[in-house]
Design a protein around this nucleic acid. Structure first.
Lengths: 339, 339
DNA sequence: TTGTACGCGTTATCAC
DNA sequence: GTGATAACGCGTACAA
């Protein structure tokens, strides 16, 4: 029989209320009773029953805010699906979700949205812009007792409770190792990033560079940025290929994959170009089907959404703190066959 | 406010007990009250609260049996870790696990173990041998009210409630597509299977063959079986390479990966052989590090374990039937970098 | 055939 | 400071 508050109360000769006050640090309890209860709980290895907590939590009607810079970014479609699935499952426990989304990476806009939902939520899942003002807002929320989980992008300068996302550096390493296999270890390489202001993109580039040191046949001829925009991506890629005609392998490290692929398609058929990209959004899958992309890397977007909500639920409803601060999904390699 | 039994009872002007009898089909209720309650429940979209169920279920102290043919098979180490993690999480709800394991694929032994745990468990997670006698035992258990989940291998001829595992056919397809990329679409190929009596191995071969039809440069020179044994695997692989010296790509579709790799290493350094295998067991990872294997395919063993226990828990404690009968993990491609 | 009452573990609210 | 009590939603033994 698992140990319950009731049992501890009996064994200590006090009431359940007192035990609850001790274990949840509500104060108003004599120091000696406190230590006695603490000792007994530790001795018996007391673990609160989540079912009981969940039942009691129903009265709170906890609200979790979801704030994503997802408008017009198909990568987040799967993340949102994951969150929505969890929302569906947990609605029976009285959990409510407050959705907010924005387009692009405006710090002002994100701060405004944070101010708007402030005071309305018990927890927050956010895809934060890596900026001090955002970090400040998040810290204020944490201070006010809001449980904050960052998703897909972290903001380590803040005191958020948990992060769910991928290992960007490792994504770059994996991309390089994959290109090595696909090209036989000999290639002239071009890389397209989203923006050097996005931490994750930088880290992918770093990972790629690091791994490249072990491939003597690789030459990195150019790195350009496309601001995650397809048109810009198309132009930059054409310029890159024109400037370095020997490029026969490209790594598309962020958004704008479709534009870059169209640029590849637009070049006169010469030496075939090996290309790998990130994330299986529909337009990217199209490019795989057309044979422009040989493989993609995948960062489990759906599971990111599920995991973030699971963490929030465990905290808010079950009273369980996250097991680890960082929840990192693996970078997977996908061909058309195993998408 | 979510809809509860209590609310339905009030609205229908009956007692909670009656609503419960209707909803859980315990009988002893007047047909007209029954239809009224049913209608009201459907109208309000009643969903039982898992927390309440879990709390009430504590009195039952449900037991789940785990029966795996895992002894001496390192693939199952991660599966077991996943199950154990779930066991830990769910122990607070009063869930108990009865562990049984066996070595190899003896139908007699598996039947004996099934007979042994019969009557002691409310649910069963089993890695079944694909045999009619086993299927019969499982059906008897289902008949007796035991909730049965097959893991890693299915046995479709039985009436098990759910299956958790991978798509074997797709694993073969993916392996072929991967080899196509790694070899540039031109190779003489050898394949090693575990046993043609294991359905999954057969299906992987089928998937590979099917996908190969689209690769004109591939020639499948030989398929041999190794009974998942490393020594046997070593011998068969050497024979295969001796018989077909042009083989420059191999697909290791099951166990005995280490033996086959040692055979590859033992050959005089001639044309390099591209090799892919299944599952990231330690000896296989070693062979990757030595460069014998270029890549492996991965079927999420840990998640298989977690998922199987989650399904059992949802049913036994929360009273939720599995959403889908088949829970299929993706076949992932792993390099050393993203293991 | 139906209703009542209690227990599951936790928390909030009184009353003392 | 502390204890008693009433929810929360569900299952069920027992009484009517």
């Amino acid at each position: 029989m698992a140990v319950t508050i009731k049992k501890i109360a009996e064994l200590c000769g006090v009431s359940r209320g007192t035990v609850d006050r001790v274990l949840n640090e509500r104060g108003k309890v004599k120091p000696e009773t406190e230590t006695a209860v603490r000792k007994m709980a530790a001795e018996l290895g007391y673990q609160p029953n989540p079912a009981g907590k969940a039942l009691a939590a129903r009265k709170h009607r906890p609200v979790v805010g979801v704030l994503l810079a997802s408008d017009g970014n198909p990568f987040f479609d799967d993340v949102i699906m994951g969150i929505k699935r969890s929302e569906e499952i947990y609605s029976i426990y009285g959990l409510k979700v407050l959705w907010r989304s924005m387009k692009g990476y405006s710090v002002d806009r994100q701060c405004a949205l944070l101010d708007e939902i402030k005071g309305q939520v018990n927890a927050l899942i956010i895809n934060p812009i890596n900026d001090e003002r955002v970090a400040g807002r998040l810290n204020a929320l944490v201070e006010a007792g809001v449980f904050v989980v960052t998703i897909n992008n972290d903001i380590e300068s803040s005191r958020r409770h948990a992060y769910v996302g991928s290992d960007y550096f490792n994504g770059g390493e994996t991309a390089c190792a994959l290109l090595e296999l696909l090209t036989g270890g000999k290639a002239d390489i071009g890389i397209i990033l989203g923006s050097s202001h996005v931490l994750g993109h930088q880290q992918r580039l770093e990972g790629f560079r690091q791994r490249m040191l072990r491939v003597p046949g690789f030459r990195l001829l150019g790195v350009v940025e496309n601001e995650d925009d397809d048109i810009c991506s198309y132009e930059r890629m054409r310029e890159l290929l024109a400037a370095f005609p020997t490029i026969n392998a490209v790594f598309l490290a962020a958004g704008g994959v479709y534009g870059a692929c169209r640029a590849l398609l637009s070049m006169p058929a010469g030496t075939p170009v090996t290309a790998v990209a990130f994330d299986s959004v529909p337009s990217t899958v199209d490019m795989m089907k057309q044979g422009v992309l040989q493989a993609i890397l995948y960062q489990h977007p759906y599971r990111q959404g599920r995991k973030a909500m699971d963490i929030v639920f465990d905290y808010l409803v079950n009273g369980i703190a996250p097991k680890r601060e960082k929840n990192i999904m693996k970078n997977e390699i996908k061909l058309l066959e195993n998408l």
